[in-house]
Design a protein around this nucleic acid. Structure first.
Lengths: 119, 119
DNA sequence: GGACTATATGTCGCTTAGTAATATATGGCT
DNA sequence: AGCCATATATTACTAAGCGACATATAGTCC
């Protein structure tokens, strides 16, 4: 039933893809964070608009680390499952700046075509 | 070489996915348009920031038509290859309104998390 | 005539990547 | 014991973008 598309679940799902890297890089910019924390922060700060699936989040963290944009290290504490904290690398910092610009350009372009004005 | 990622081709490519439907629906809102025209308009109005591959554009038009959001009809004119003009259906109009809201919410959420201020 | 370009639509096969489901491990609450 | 939150991880399925190629019409340039 086509009506079930209203609410734009498809749009929401697709949009998350491209912005995922930008979100993660931004969150580890000021302080190292572990995956579970990143997932929760995105959900909380977006007030539920953005939500990460673990099967997307962890592989994405591995990809970013493999590219050298973030650097992870294991931290073990008593009474806690081990956590892998990621920090932004110098190269990641450059990528983040570039992605912020791309994001701005992209939003402006879409707004121009779709006739959306930003307040 | 990881530096080749700078410029965010990956981000750009991914971001286009989710916004593609919104772009097309917006462009056929006021007047019927054919695929080739839509592709060119998106490229021109975005000043090259957004570009559609034909192997993405046409299948996407078929999907939107199959869902009943747009309705196409063939138009043949002498001295011209046949064109398929798509117009927005009443249901498509509702979807477009919903997707515009989703888009706004999404942009606000990403901006909040990534620390981007909009002027 | 032949080559090339712009217009206009269409399809194949490769690859990327999101997601549901499932798994593992620890600690606290009832 | 049962359940939930925390925290990381993997497998199998699926959707969809894209390079490359194909088809068709008409005009331009040499």
């Amino acid at each position: 039933m086509a009506m079930s598309y209203i609410g734009s679940h498809i749009l929401d799902r697709e949009l998350k893809k491209g912005s995922a890297e930008l979100l993660i890089l931004s969150l580890v910019e000021d302080q190292p964070r572990h995956g579970y924390d990143i997932g929760n922060l995105i959900e909380q700060r977006s007030e539920g608009v953005l939500r990460f699936n673990v099967a997307s989040l962890y592989p994405l963290l591995y990809r970013l680390e493999k590219r050298g944009w973030i650097q992870g290290r294991w931290v073990e504490k008593a009474g806690q499952r081990r956590r892998r904290y990621y920090r932004l690398t110098p190269e990641g910092k450059k990528v983040l700046a570039a992605q912020r610009n791309s994001w701005r350009e992209f939003v402006e372009a879409v707004n121009r075509i779709t006739g959306i004005e930003h307040a």
